[in-house]
């Protein structure tokens, strides 16, 4: 039984970015429960407080300074975006940001913290940093305090750079139509807001770039698409008209992009990087190969 509780606590600690050996937790629980006859709930509380008590007030840092995991920090930031919750254990998740960039946050349901609102600024006291697939994020737990701020924070966009292979081009890419009233992409000729509308043609690519360690959704607007593929919007419309099928444009995009290496650069907005610059990866150099051979031989 003590083992089960210890396992539970260990999982909870690691959710908070705190790694504690199972045996250590088990031993502490065992002493409290079996030796000192502390009720289970109290014993749990006691052990939790030993590990997850944040420092009285963690350092106030900027988003760009978050470069390690498992660190307690405080942030003054604006809620840029809230995302639909991925699981019951998460109360809220999204992006917060300050002048230096944005970072993902997760607020545990068990934290009992007040709800935050988009576009409002807060002091997030005592959050713990975490890393997932090479990107940092912060977790808001019971130790966190959220204080609404009156001031406004101008959120800077972090320019992201990825060099990898494009592994997917998603639906909604290619020759698309947008609503003439609100610019939303139409789905089956219909705008989510305005219903059936005539629509204006546009070119867009929603893709996925992958470097073997991280995957990143990318968005390419018409200007970038025209330059990259070498097909203008008018030419794309002609292609579609000739084939009596809009999907020929998408197929042409896929042919030129999927499975090839590119380097991309642009600001992150939500889950996407809005690509402002994209280049084919340069050919490999003899020097790179030789360097890697030397490195391998040294293993």
């Amino acid at each position: 039984m003590v083992r089960d509780i210890a396992e539970q606590l260990k999982a909870r600690f690691s959710e908070m970015g705190v790694e504690v050996p199972l045996e250590e937790i088990e031993k502490k629980l065992d002493v409290l429960i079996n030796e000192f006859r502390v009720p289970i709930e109290e014993a749990k509380r006691s052990v939790v407080s030993q590990y997850v008590r944040a420092p009285k007030s963690a350092d106030l840092v900027k988003v760009k300074d978050i470069q390690s995991e498992g660190r307690w920090v405080s942030l003054k930031a604006k809620v840029v975006q809230l995302w639909p919750s991925e699981s019951e254990s998460i109360a809220q998740a999204g992006l917060i940001g300050d002048e230096t960039g944005t970072i993902k946050f997760t607020k545990w349901a068990k934290s009992d913290l007040p709800l935050v609102e988009e576009n409002r600024c807060y002091m997030f006291k005592n959050v713990v940093t975490d890393e997932w697939q090479g990107r940092y994020n912060v977790k808001l737990s019971r130790s966190t305090e959220i204080i609404p701020l009156e001031e406004d924070i101008e959120v800077g966009s972090l320019v992201e750079e990825v060099m990898g292979a494009i592994v997917d081009i998603q639906s909604g890419s290619g020759l698309i139509k947008r609503c003439e009233l609100c610019n939303r992409a139409l789905v089956k000729g219909s705008c989510g807001e305005h219903g059936k509308v005539e629509g204006i043609y546009d070119l867009r690519i929603k893709g996925v770039i992958d470097d073997g360690k991280i995957v990143q959704d990318i968005l390419l607007n018409r200007e970038i698409v025209e330059m990259l593929i070498g097909i203008t919007l008018d030419e794309a419309k002609e292609m579609a008209a000739e084939a009596l099928d809009q999907s020929v444009v998408l197929d042409a995009f896929k042919e030129k992009l999927i499975g090839r290496y590119f380097s991309i650069k642009g600001p992150r907005v939500g889950r996407y990087v809005l690509v402002e610059d994209i280049k084919s990866a340069p050919k490999i150099s003899d020097q790179e190969v030789k360097k890697l051979i030397t490195e391998t031989e040294a293993l």
Partner: peptide, 15 residues
Amino acid sequence: SIQIVDADTYDLWIL
């Protein structure tokens, strides 16, 4: 997905 690529892409992948 399966797409035709060129020899340069093959080199990049090996590296």
